[in-house]
Amino acid sequence: MFSYCADPSTLDTFRWLTCYLTTGVHMSFYKSFLLVLALLAVTAPVALSFGFLGAMSARSPMKPVSWLGKGYIAIVRGVPDIAFFLFFVIALDQSFELIKHNIVCPDWTDPIRQGNDFLVCPQAKVPLGTSPEYVHQLYGFLLAVITFAIVFGAFAANVLYGGMQAVPRAQLETAEAYGMTRRQTFWRVLVPQMWVYALPGLSNLWMVLIKATPLLFLLGIEDIVYWARELGGTKTSKFSAYPHPDWRMWYFLFLLIFYLSFTKVSEVVLERVMRRLNKGQATSGGEAMRKEASA
């Protein structure tokens, strides 16, 4: 990157470090941080809408729909989330291929599960074997987003369901007294009011989501954990212009610091949002603010 980097072995420590930290592979490492942020930015709204649908169906007066919603919420209990991550990546991939297979080659007669193999016709591969590398990466990322959204959607559904239950009953009764239909009551009265009750749970969920991002590594994506392991490993002068011993400990220390500062910043921001939402609300948080103001 810098002009003096041509022969790293002659440099003093500081310059050596500046060269070392700006090599091409390190740039990929820094880019993978953006990947984590992108995952968070995409997953959070998708998971929230999954959660909203789950909570809505859990409240449904129709029994089967409500069972579906409650079952979705309950299924994530009791089982480690990491098992879901490992499961969904293969399961989603296979179901996509199976659906495409049924559409693209309906005349295919061979069984799809042959012993230990899962074989669909070549045209039905997702993505196609001939597609360029970035399509494969994008597909992997898409699978990761869906998996995260399914798992965190269930958590969000639980929180939003609680928030909906917490809205005072009298508010809904008033809406009914005004002659609103069920749908109108839901959208005009319940939904605007539930957020303040759901926010503590949702901010907790956001923290949890941040801390779940390293699991991307398990989904086979070249994320920060992958690069930290790659870059930190021992490099000999034969293969690298920047030989160094095993530095993986330091790389992971850096990741720890990254996550700690990320959660700290989120905590401060969410605290602000909470104060803003609590303003003038008939909750204990709002009451505390009123006391503060009058004191």
Partner: peptide
């Protein structure tokens, strides 16, 4: 404040 996953990695290499 940090993911358990990263804690495992760090501890192992430490």
């Amino acid at each position: 404040g940090s993911p358990l996953f990263i804690q495992f990695f760090f501890a192992y290499f430490f």
